[in-house]
Design a protein around this nucleic acid. Sequence first.
DNA 1: TTCGCAATAGTCGATTTCGACTGATAGTTT
DNA 2: AAACTATCAGTCGAAATCGACTATTGCGAA
Lengths: 192, 192
Amino acid sequence: MPRRALDNPLVLAVLGLLLEHPTHPYQMLTDLRARGGDRAAAINRGTLYDVVEALVTAGWVAPQGTERTGNRPERTVYALTDAGHDELVRRLDSQIRTPRREFTQFLGAVAHLGALGPIGAVEALTERGQRLSARIAGDERELAEVLAGGVPRLHVIEAEYALGQARAELAWIDTVVDDIRAGSLIWPTRED
Amino acid sequence: MPRRALDNPLVLAVLGLLLEHPTHPYQMLTDLRARGGDRAAAINRGTLYDVVEALVTAGWVAPQGTERTGNRPERTVYALTDAGHDELVRRLDSQIRTPRREFTQFLGAVAHLGALGPIGAVEALTERGQRLSARIAGDERELAEVLAGGVPRLHVIEAEYALGQARAELAWIDTVVDDIRAGSLIWPTRED
DNA sequence: TTCGCAATAGTCGATTTCGACTGATAGTTT
DNA sequence: AAACTATCAGTCGAAATCGACTATTGCGAA
């Protein structure tokens, strides 16, 4: 029994890919990148191999055999086991069903906004707002193009969600900047 | 020069606390928990000690001396260095200024929503919606109480942000559930 | 008063993750 | 044709993280 929970985000990504068809890790990498799967998880190659191995010991994935092209390193092809399929569904279900508090870098930074002072805060937030709205515009366009190209909406549903989050963040940033400028969000001076 | 970037979320939390006054790690822990600093970062005690040590080698924090109460283990008190103060501001500024794509568990799960099938997806999303709205209500109440109690808004600004994100998530969940029920979000059958 | 439990404070081994490195093939400049 | 560069594919040691473990004090209940 593994001591730790094996909760690297790549776990879902790998199980999800193998649900479609068996492949070797390098192929997973390119597939994930191609279809913007790197929009749902940070992908490090070394980690990917580690995760796949961990999945094998967990019994959720099994080596299917090896291939070789030319004199390149041998590639091991992995396939999803039945247990792996169950695990994928179980994880998906639980991760969707129960909201856990998630900690983003930005949230952590916002918690110490005070240390930037009102001027610094306005400046930094304003710039973020600009960059963020540029990104939103780009993502919206891209999403529309992909959908127009016939890709089913379900396959880009996470992009839609991310867009919603980004829009809400932008709205919040705007109100905070306004409030600081208007003096309604005040900077308490420390009394120790 | 450390090989890695030292980007554990606790870094900001620790630097932020030491900005106020020197303390020992255990005190940081209780302080962080008390003021809901655990709303901005996951806190593991072992990791906290590791991070503090890393901050020392980075020169951002320095041991100030040791205390001892009774026969308890000795406590080392740390203080922020000037370099540490600079680093705090630099990190804060850059983490706020430039939006990076952040990967939450939920986002990762949503990317594979298809694997649950329409029924399973509706079920899981509906439950999340219920739990989430309960949480939102609780957080709203708590936030209002704290503010009414005289805590400056700036000190709970991250709770406000988190609330905004949660509300947007809830709204998105509701539309997706409706769309699945209405049949406007269709489940493509795989043709390989 | 003695038992048990919570809070205090930190250590340490095992696991997980990272990212630099290797080394082949194929295409493209100069 | 030599010299670059990009892509392919994976390995491995070092660094980061976790969480189980230790050990003391103080308090309320039995």
